[in-house]
Every structure is written in structure tokens, then in C-alpha cells.
Amino acid sequence: MSDDEPTGISRRGFLQTGALGGGAALVGSQAKAQEAEAGTRVPVTLNVNGKPYEMMLDPRVTLLDALRERLDLTGTKVGCNHGQCGACTVMIDGTRVNSCLTLAVAASGREVTTIEGLASPNGDLHPMQAAFIEHDAFQCGYCTPGQIVSAVACVKEGHASDEAEIREYMSGNICRCAAYKGIVAAVQEARDKIDGEA
């Protein structure tokens, strides 16, 4: 707990300005007059696939909507908007999360990796992407970006040791076409390639 850590800022107010990554400006509740109006846009810096993007956003905008609507990164899909399907999976600081339940402002200053960030700049596919094609681990392809990002993280977490573990730890990504058998095979193959490179 960082109770006594100096804030380095003027303890004045709810956020309205300033780079979030550097710390929020604060105001005690006794200083309500200076608090930001609800609905006021706030500055957000999203570091997506290694590139920083600065923008002003309504704090209600989710990371999912910011990626799609502001950055035109539409590989990240909307499937339920409630954390129930996994189609919107991205990594934040290397950890897989549902971008639909993440406020963009809360992700400000952190590293976001989307499906568009997995292939090499020269176009070579990530081993997981290649394995998904090889094992026909999708049909309609709509859940696929979320599956692949989730699978990359799953391997990284060490939750891909055998078929049963992959099935359990890939169950946060629903595939209505039900390409599950191919997905498990793809994760196994890519795991071995990734581990081999490591």
C-alpha cells in the first residue's frame, strides 16, 4: 500500500487534464467546485502494438470501442460487450483481458497488443496465426482474433501443457462455429514452435 507516497501533484481534483500515465490530478471531496464535470473528455494515451496514440476521450469509451472507432483497428471484435465471449480479447502489458470491460482511460499509458500487432512487420505470421490456418481452427473467423490473442497469452502463461489444460484455459473464448478441436491442435503446435524459439 502506498499511503504515504507523495503524489507529486497538487491533490486538486478529479481528472480533467494532464497525462494520466504520469498520475492523476486530484481534488479532495471538499473541493467539489474544481472537479471535472461528468462527461468531460479526458486525454488518453494508448500504446497500441508499440505505437503511442494520443486522443481526447469520453471516459465511458471502452478500450474496445477506442480501438475500433478511433484507431480503425477492427480486428478486435464485438461479440457481447459484457465479458462473456472473448471476441474482444487483447493483451494489456502482456496479459489477456476483455477490452469490452476495460475503460480506455484506465488503459492509458499501458501497452496494448491487438491481433494487428502479432505478425512481423515483414508480414510473416506469428506461429499461432500460422497454426490456426494449418489446423482450420476457425470457420467464420469472427472470434478468431480474440482466440489467437488469447492463445498467445495462454502459452505465455504456461497454461498450454496438455489438451485438457488448453481446453480449460481457452474456454473464455466462445467459438459458435465450434472450431474447438482445431483450436486445441493449433495451440499445441504453436506452443512447441514458440517454446522451441525461446
Partner: peptide, 21 residues
């Protein structure tokens, strides 16, 4: 045969109807 639209789908480049800006 691998899907010829596979690359588009695994890279997120396949645009579905509501993905067009």
C-alpha cells in the same frame, strides 16, 4: 486445402459488415 481467406481472418484484416469505417 487451407482457407484462402485464412490470412485475412487470422490477422484481423478481414472486415465484416460492421467493421467498415
Amino acid at each position: 486445402h487451407d482457407r484462402i481467406d485464412g490470412r485475412l481472418k487470422v490477422t484481423g484484416d478481414a472486415r465484416y459488415s460492421l467493421d467498415f469505417a
